[in-house]
């Protein structure tokens, strides 16, 4: 069978999409690197705000590892936050 003539153009469209994904992802990973070790504010649901030192996230950004998490019940030395429970996290540079 012969490939339709449009296959080459869709191939380059895929390449272009992959290039954009790579650029966006690299910027995101560099943001996480910048956040590492910094005191970060986490905005949770129900307008709950907590602070912690950011450690790392897993590759799918499903969990965030933090230390010195300041909660109303005291400070947790180490904790994992589920991303689903977090709306936003912010820090200053």
């Amino acid at each position: 069978t012969t490939l339709p003539s449009s296959s080459s153009s869709s191939g380059s469209a895929d390449e272009e999409e992959q290039r954009l994904r790579a650029e966006l992802r690299e910027r995101f990973l560099r943001t996480l690197l910048l956040m590492t070790g910094k005191r970060v504010r986490f905005d949770m649901h129900e307008h709950v705000r907590v602070h912690a030192r950011f450690g790392a996230s897993d590759i799918d950004v499903l969990n965030l590892q933090v230390c010195d998490l300041e909660t109303p019940l005291g400070v947790q030395r180490e904790a994992l936050l589920r991303s689903q429970d977090v709306i936003a996290c912010s820090f200053e540079v």
Binding site: L24, T31, V61, V86, I87, A88, S90, E92, V93
Partner: peptide
């Protein structure tokens, strides 16, 4: 600054009143 293509999280930059740069990551699910 970027949108993570894996989690769809948005990274926003803004200048604070203290003139420091604030970086905010809004999780894609939200």
């Amino acid at each position: 600054f970027t949108v993570d293509p894996v989690s769809a999280s948005v990274v926003l930059l803004s200048v604070q009143e203290s003139e420091r740069l604030s970086v905010r990551v809004i999780l894609g699910h939200a």
